[in-house]
Design a protein around this nucleic acid. Structure first.
Lengths: 345, 345
DNA sequence: AATAAAAATACAATCGATTGTATTTTTATG
DNA sequence: CATAAAAATACAATCGATTGTATTTTTATT
């Protein structure tokens, strides 16, 4: 017999008992004697029985599975968040299904459809850069499937999310540059509709204000913060009539390509210009000069988001407590912004 | 009504037709009139109907889902392989479920159990460093679930796999060092039982032999090729009575930490010692000096493996054609091994 | 208009496990 | 030993979709 086809009915027939007893035995129900349980479990192992979760989940209308949607799994922040999610989910008896939107709205929509069709018990999501319309998430809500945003969230009422304190991190990054003596600081921001970039930008502005530095509109560069964008931003920046001596980039990828371009143009980092990134990608510690950046505790954000989600699944009705958890990032000071030290040496 | 609870029976009742007709209409069966189809689809959309794949898959005993097991999604090679897998799977109408073994045998086993319970149609796997026993894969075979290894495979008969030509790549890497004038070349190898490391090692030996360089057992360092291992290897290597002027590391991670340690010990790369890695991690292009390495075409390996797996699923019986596909890697020459250039300049 | 052929739809079993209720068996008590 | 109470197991419906077969309706032909 193909062991993949072994069902509780086969076991029941062989042992001449009812399949309901087999089911209960395999689920360790107190309604079955130890003796019978042993017999059943032994036979199940012998036949290589493997429960069919499709049938089980269908009957229970519960899959014990959480869906995760991230822009890309290869980004350091997301892969560590996923590690945290898997860890927390496993502890609480949940499986995890991972989807990538690859920063595309259409993919994100289709991810949600797939998760829906597979009846996941809840969804954890970090939205794509293209996502400006949130109807697909409203669809989840209509179907009463709890969801929690982490990091990149949607600004829609009554949703739970676990977020980095992007304002504070943006503030810290900028103030660090100011403390180091940089005076004319540009900012590389991401798509305007994304809350995280708005908040990092607001933090930047607040730091300037605190230190009585004029905010100059021309020093803000919007892009998708991809590799090419960092290069383009530098080219634009160098053609400005204003002399810039510091850059706070809202991600590391753009910061790193910007540094390369700066070097190519003959500028010295951190002496002529200081650079601070955001996310603490693995590369940032290795490049030369190493990149000062904000560390986002991905693992913790993942676990917290998962715990929040599971607690909402447990409650099980509409009366979720829609909670926002704010996690603090931390500035990692590296070479790319050490004007003081470099100048002294 | 909770839209998540809408079934074909609800639609059938409302329209006063049979649920089988609804099912056929939604699956675009020719057995239903266009007029009826339109009516049904309209009502389905109105109610926010979403097929329950659990029920559908249970009935069809086919999930249209492929399971993927990788050591970690954060490694560049694996995330690009996954991109290739998703691309190919999507084209052929399959979903993909990703699992991480985190290099642990126990996790790998439990991944297989989960995939089995969820009745995936096939499995793509790259085994963990701990995997020396292949019983869990034999379990898949017993259940007649096709599987294909990619990159890190098991050397068991009658399995399909898509592999890098590790021998050739190891040969090329080593010969490149020899061409550059390095004469005493050490090799950092991985766990002995993994085929990929065996083959890279064999390639190394073959290159030495071709160029009449004696093979010296002491110059082979086995480890798990993690960050710390690169450092440890250098310390051991520098304490040898033999002067080493080249290193071929079986992965980039160990190569990079080794370079750091070499620099710390005052050795100049590539003048005093040349280094070649393996895998072409993103960091390798960015560090200084940039690392010469072997590029593994992850995306292609992913698509090829997926195509092979799906073809075996299609055949559907035991008579799989167990195929091995060998893909060529390519040497990417960067600064860490350019003795010739550096010496001339 | 009658009737055969074809088209459209309805019926009913099925996938495999779960679970409330009913029945049988065992144990305890007078 | 009788009988109630408790324990163990059996029965049967159910989750939601699919699909082979049966039935009804429509269309075509004479």
């Amino acid at each position: 017999m193909n062991p993949n086809k072994v069902t509780i009915h086969d076991i029941a027939k062989i042992l001449n008992i009812d399949s309901s007893t087999v089911s209960r035995a395999l689920n360790n129900s107190p309604r079955v004697t130890e003796k019978t349980k042993k017999k059943i479990i032994a036979k199940a192992n012998e036949l290589g029985y493997q429960r069919n979760d499709l049938a089980s989940n269908l009957r229970k209308s519960k899959t014990n599975t959480l869906g995760v949607i991230v822009p890309r799994i290869s980004r350091h922040f997301f892969s560590s968040a996923i590690a945290g999610i898997e860890e927390a989910a496993f502890k609480m008896g949940y499986n995890v299904v991972i989807c990538q939107s690859l920063e595309q709205l259409e993919r994100e929509k289709s991810n949600i459809k797939t998760l829906l069709a597979n009846r996941v018990d809840g969804v954890l999501a970090s939205i794509s850069m293209e996502t400006e319309n949130y109807d697909h998430f409203e669809g989840l809500r209509k179907r009463k499937i709890p969801f929690v945003f982490f990091d990149r969230h949607c600004n829609i009422p009554n949703t739970s999310s676990v977020l980095l304190d992007d304002f504070q991190a943006g503030f810290d990054a900028t103030e660090h540059l100011i403390f180091q003596g940089y005076k004319s600081i540009a900012h590389f921001s991401g798509p305007k509709h994304l809350e995280i970039y708005k908040n990092r930008f607001e933090g930047y502005k607040a730091a300037l204000k605190k230190h009585h530095i004029d905010f100059i509109e021309e020093l803000i560069f919007y892009s998708r913060l991809m590799e090419q964008d960092g290069i383009d931003n530098i080219n634009k920046l160098l053609s400005l009539p204003i002399k810039v001596d510091g850059i706070f980039s809202a991600n590391d990828v753009a910061a790193i390509s910007a540094m390369k371009q700066l070097k190519k143009k003959g500028l010295r980092i951190p002496i002529d210009i200081g650079v601070v990134g955001f996310s603490n990608e693995a590369i940032s510690a290795v490049i030369e000069p190493s990149l000062t950046t904000i560390n986002q505790p991905g693992f913790e954000i993942g676990t917290r988001a998962t715990e929040l989600l599971v607690s909402q699944i447990m409650v099980g009705n509409d009366s979720f407590i829609h909670e926002k958890i704010i996690i603090q990032g931390s500035l990692i000071e590296r070479e790319s912004s050490q004007k003081i030290k470099e100048t002294i040496e």
